[in-house]
């Protein structure tokens, strides 16, 4: 996945899209006040400087689907594991809730179900049947909408063809109003995501930790770069 910070406006369409797609529960006021809100993707906001010279920066942070994910080796039950396609999978059924993976994750993109999720009836009718609902005591996280990836692959296989670049979009990418997010196969050098990931604006979050994140951020441009070019 590539996220262009020059396009991202921090509107959080991705956040709500993720809730809708992945059956993420709202925890309510009390639990939110206890820092237990679950947002698989969040938009981090940073201020720099003081009035009137204030700069605001937005940065959406989903699970970085690290190539060398700190969350994976620490899980004693293989609940968090590396899929063949290179995703950091989370098998909810295997999870016993040590929360070790969440501590090991440098990006804080893992979320714990402190209680059983509640959907006041009939809000439960909104639940996506393609995504399991998680119970109390287990970790959950961004999956890059694995159900959409699988559906795309099954569709392509049924049509006896390869998956087309851009055909599969996680919910966040699909919703992004500024088209700041691009999803694609990084092992295919020709994909749009691979092309953007080679951009000279490309950086990776906390790259120095050696986690090999698979989310590439394209740095903000500056108008003056444009002027000098």
């Amino acid at each position: 996945m590539v996220i262009d910070l020059d396009r991202c406006t921090g509107c959080e369409a991705c956040v709500v899209a993720c809730h809708a797609e992945n059956n993420i529960a709202t925890v309510g006021e009390d639990q939110a006040a206890r820092a237990r809100a679950m947002h698989w993707i969040r938009v981090e906001r940073y201020y720099e400087g003081e009035f009137p010279n204030v700069k605001t920066k937005f940065m959406p942070v989903p699970c970085q689907q690290c190539g060398a994910a700190p969350c994976e080796p620490v899980c004693p039950t293989f609940a968090s594991y590396h899929t063949i396609e290179g995703l950091n999978g989370q098998v909810y059924n295997r999870c016993i809730g040590t929360r070790y993976c969440a501590n090991a994750c440098p990006y804080n993109t893992r979320f714990f179900n402190f209680y059983n999720p509640v959907w006041d009836k009939p809000l439960d009718l909104q639940l996506n049947p393609d995504v399991s609902v998680r119970s109390e005591g287990i970790m959950e996280k961004c999956t890059f909408c694995v159900q959409r990836i699988k559906a795309g692959e099954v569709q392509a296989a049924a049509e006896k063809r390869l998956v087309k670049d851009g055909e599969i979009q996680p919910a966040c990418v699909q919703s992004c109003p500024t088209q700041a997010m691009v999803f694609g196969d990084l092992s295919d050098p020709e994909s749009e995501a691979s092309r953007l990931a080679r951009s000279n604006r490309a950086t990776r979050l906390l790259d120095e930790l050696g986690t090999f994140p698979k989310v590439t951020y394209l740095q903000r441009g500056s108008w003056h770069d444009n002027e000098n070019a």
């Binding site: 709500v16 809708a20 797609e21 699909q174 919703s175 109003p177 088209q179």
Partner: peptide, 26 residues
């Protein structure tokens, strides 16, 4: 049952995109 709202890619105004409020219309 409606399960998710997404932008209509063919639509001239929003070209398949939808803001957080629109998605929450569900």
């Amino acid at each position: 049952l409606a399960k998710k709202l997404e932008g209509n890619p063919a639509h001239p105004v929003n070209e398949g995109k939808l803001c957080p409020r629109g998605q929450a219309g569900l």
